[in-house]
Design a protein around this nucleic acid. Structure first.
Lengths: 205, 205
DNA sequence: ACCTGAACACCGTTCAAGT
DNA sequence: ACCTGAACACCGTTCAAGT
């Protein structure tokens, strides 16, 4: 099933993105490598930004698919941890795609929002299951899932741009940070009876 | 003391960056607003990227200065928490500067590395003091400081690009995530005797 | 030491056509 | 429905001068 010009354009653009960053993906070069004229892309995308958004959407969908596929494994915490490590590896192996995916689309394209929502819903479910198992502390699962996502994203972003090895000697590995967080959360989960309501954390809902 | 052309150029470029993003800062417009020719900037910066790096360096220095200034306050944890909230607010109020500051400079400019190092050294010191006070769990302070930094950065980046309110109803506030992390860490710190060496976390050093 | 004006190569986008 | 070629406005960068 011949890929179709549209998918070819996205493939070519993603390749240019990987090689030379977002600055290297130019509509003229995309058209040239795809074997069409330099403005044929305008028949498939409204403009350059729309082409870039299509790359981001494809990345996000692939990410969400990998997450749901991994959900049939061991314990939900193990799946969560593996998902965060996969997220980190994705950022390290394809830094330009990672930067692009979480870049421009503040006003953008329902595809992106849908894919992001799907992934997050799966994550929230796994967090809730882990809380019931007593291996994550109680509280609003949405909020706790956001905490996990924020750490994974921050570690991935800092690591992919080299901002995590700022000290002289030992470099803090991004993967360690993920494991450390889970260890702290597990420790916090078993520090007090899960049913108590007062104190250190406001309960949502 | 008249600002000097170089500083004027940086000011103008930062203004354009705030208004229209990195795409809006063009050497020609910078020159026009600064009252010089469209290529006078080349007498002060090697190229456009160098001008952008100068903005990033100024932001990072101001950030480091604010951190060291705040270090003369209450408890070190309070200072740490306040610093992370300030980091978050900076990202929300100046998203383009935030994105730029942690963007391109993988090979770059000693100013940036120096400013980043200074800020992190201060953070590590406060973490170590907090650990001795028993309000943060023991372990390598560099590693724990990286964890805090990664969460602050991830929450700030996701929040500044609107990726934290992906669910339908309640939006997870980025500031809450910071407070949550400190609560979990405090809970983990008091869950076991600080001196025990085995188990959940490998000790560094 | 700092600035200017012209010039070059390149890019995003548009438009009038072509099949 | 999809593609092409010419054209326009804009940008980063360079160069030969000017003071």
């Amino acid at each position: 099933v011949a890929p179709g010009t549209r998918d070819t354009l996205i493939d070519v653009a993603a390749g240019l993105l990987d090689e030379g960053g977002v600055g290297a993906v130019t509509l003229r070069e995309v058209g040239r490598l795809a074997g069409v004229s330099h403005n044929a892309p305008y028949k498939h995308f409204a403009n350059k930004e729309a082409l870039l958004a299509a790359i981001a959407a494809r990345e996000l969908e692939s990410q969400a698919a990998a997450l749901t596929a991994a959900a049939r494994e061991r314990s939900p915490v193990a799946v969560l941890r593996a998902a965060m490590h996969r997220y980190l590896n994705w950022a390290l192996e394809h830094p330009a795609r990672f930067k692009l995916t979480f870049g421009a689309w503040s006003e953008g394209s329902d595809e992106l929002a849908a894919a992001a929502n799907a992934a997050q819903t799966v994550m929230i479910g796994m967090v809730a299951t882990s809380q019931e198992a007593g291996v994550l502390p109680p509280g609003d699962p949405v909020r706790l899932a956001s905490l996990l996502r924020a750490l994974a994203h921050g570690a991935a972003d800092l690591a992919s741009t080299g901002h995590l090895r700022a000290d002289g000697k030992g470099n803090a590995d991004a993967g360690q940070l993920i494991d450390d967080l889970f260890a702290y959360l597990r420790s916090a989960a078993s520090s007090g009876p899960p049913t108590r309501t007062g104190g250190r954390t406001r309960r949502a809902r």
